[in-house]
């Protein structure tokens, strides 16, 4: 334990270990840093920027930035919250997110973040893009209307499933998730139990025919806001 070092997040002293990112150290300390593209089982990606913190005054993504001795991290200043809200709102308006009938509602990380930040309606105009569905696979449904390009499916398929089913194609506003087949998902070796499916934080990649099975009130974010599990560790450090 001699290699542990101290740094602060919002003035609170936190212990870190060499090789840890700021987010990993914060999680252990029970401090929640909001995130979307980050996933515990996957390598950091740093693409959604929702976990942006100030490290010694400079903006950095907490999921990729290593923790270090003595660094001063700001996680919840007004300015940072405003940046995160803007990022989340932009994710909403650049896709077609209809939470009111989406089966991921209540279990969706994007929706849960919006609720946590009190975003009732985005201030930017909706872009209403035309996005493709892929229902060709017998057990998996892709609704690109809801994709936020976090890349979790790409990393999970490659690193956890060992399959490389998903990949990004296109650039800029044309960037989208494609499947590793000439036509559709049915022509890949994707399977219902793949981590690439369960890793999707939104309702873009879904297991078929199980939607709405969990009643309202028992869904992941019905009782407590996203991040509460991490914060609970701080409130009850001996549990």
């Amino acid at each position: 334990m001699n290699d542990r070092f101290a740094f602060t997040i919002d003035g609170v002293e936190v212990q870190g270990r060499p090789g840890q990112t700021i987010m990993q150290a914060a999680d252990e300390a029970g401090i929640y840093i909001p995130r979307l593209c980050s996933h515990k089982e996957l390598a950091p990606h740093g693409s959604c920027r929702v976990c942006t913190v100030l490290v010694n005054g400079r903006p950095q993504t907490a999921c990729t930035q290593p923790a270090g001795p003595g660094i001063i991290v700001e996680n919840s200043s007004e300015a940072l919250l405003a940046i995160r809200c803007n990022l989340i709102e932009m994710l909403f308006i650049e896709g077609n997110h209809f939470c009111m009938f989406c089966e991921k509602s209540g279990n969706c990380e994007l929706q849960a973040l919006a609720y946590r930040f009190g975003i009732m309606a985005p201030k930017y105009p909706y872009l209403f893009p035309t996005r493709e569905l892929d229902a060709s696979h017998p057990d998996i449904f892709i609704d690109r209307n809801r994709c936020i390009l976090c890349g979790r499916c790409v990393r999970a398929s490659r690193d956890l499933d060992g399959k490389n089913v998903f990949q990004f194609v296109g650039r800029g506003p044309r960037k989208r998730i494609a499947v590793n087949a000439k036509t559709a998902l049915a022509d890949t070796d994707a399977a219902r139990a793949d981590k690439a499916v369960s890793a999707c934080p939104v309702g873009a990649i879904l297991r078929k025919r199980v939607g709405y099975g969990i009643p309202i009130g028992q869904r992941m974010y019905d009782a407590a806001p996203i991040g509460s599990d991490i914060e609970a560790a701080r409130a009850h450090p001996h549990k």
Binding site: M100, F101, E103, A135, G211
Partner: peptide, 14 residues
């Protein structure tokens, strides 16, 4: 049209 069938009871009630 195009939506998965299990979504319809929740969607059309809107």
């Amino acid at each position: 049209q195009g939506r998965p069938f299990w979504e319809v009871p929740v969607l059309v009630q809107r």
